[in-house]
Simulated assay, not measured.
Amino acid sequence: MRIPILIGVIVAIGFLVLNSVFTVDERQKAMVLQFGQVRDIREQPGLAFKLPFIQNVVYYDSRIQGLDTNALEVTPLDDRRLIVDAFARWRISDVAQFRRAVGAGGMQAASQRLEAILNANVREALGAVRSEAVLSADRVGLMNRIRDKAIEEARDLGIEIIDVRLKRADLPEQNLKATFDRMQAERQREAADERARGQEAAQRLRAQADRTALETVSEADRDAQVIRGEADAERNRVLAESYGVDPEFFAFLRSMDAYKAAMTGANSTLLIEPDSAFFSYLHSPHQRRLQDVMSPAAAPAPSADPAAPAPAE
């Protein structure tokens, strides 16, 4: 009789021990409840004890959790609707506060509450700016603003929000074509403005270049005229000096220049008397001497001496 009783006592003691001991994993936080009231919280991994039968243990995941929100339609200041998807990274920071906030719903209820908080902050942040800010580099500042607001509101849930990001910010399908057409028109207007400014600058440069070229050519013509005048004066001086040294040679040069100018190209027919002075240098030296002899100025004066011999016939 004693053996069965002893076995029963051992079994009962083992059963009590098993119901008094629980294990906390390093990835979990444990909460000891007694009739629904929080009696103890275990966050360090290892063995822990509780009162059997009247206390129970609830485990919560202490790792970082991810939350992907459903697609949300928001309307920025310019009334251009956007489809936005966001995600958050969070974890439980205060197990007791978390239990009081979400009750028995646990992680699923916490995800629903967080999604509502994120959606409200996304609508508020994106509704206060134009759509260009959501689609530009300002998007980082908007995400930080949404994260900071969500962190404050999530503290009441015993949750620590680590990060919030916008995954997608697209236009609705029915608005894409109109938006793309408007963007194309804006880019074409900007391109036309750039081309107009470029043409204006080009005309300015051309006008400046034409003015510079005209001034340069004018100065060159002026300098050329001055040089030509100085050269003509020098030539006339040299000719004048030459005339004073040898008038016969100067007359010869002037006659040669006259022949060259009068008999150039088709202008070679002249109606001039043969004994004109124009052809004085075209006669042979013998003819010139004969003309000089036969000219009245060269004939000897008649002698008054009757004894002088008569000229030869």
Rank of each mutant, 00 (worst) to 15 (best):
I54A: 04
I83T: 09
R39W: 11
E43R: 04
Q28N: 13
K29E: 04
I92D: 01
N56E: 05
R99Y: 10
A48R: 06
I54S: 14
M107A: 07
W90G: 01
A104E: 13
Y59M: 11
N70Q: 14
Y60D: 04
N119E: 13
Q65W: 11
Q34T: 15
T69Y: 01
Q44E: 14
E73N: 08
R80K: 15
V24Y: 01
T75V: 14
V17K: 02
T75A: 02
A101C: 05
F15A: 08
E73K: 04
A30I: 12
G66P: 04
F22W: 06
S62M: 00
R80F: 01
S62R: 10
E73D: 08
R80T: 14
D40H: 10
W90H: 10
P52A: 00
G14E: 12
L47E: 07
A88Q: 03
G14S: 15
F98C: 06
L77F: 03
Y59T: 11
D68F: 14
R99I: 01
A104L: 10
L72A: 05
G103W: 12
A104I: 09
F49I: 15
I54C: 05
F15E: 00
A86F: 11
V84G: 02
S111N: 15
N56S: 08
S93V: 09
S20L: 05
A116K: 12
F49V: 15
F22Y: 15
G14T: 12
V74Y: 06
G46F: 09
D68G: 12
R99W: 08
V57N: 05
L114M: 10
D94I: 05
D78V: 10
A109F: 00
M31R: 00
F87E: 13
L47I: 12
Q108S: 13
V122C: 03
D40P: 12
V102A: 05
D79A: 13
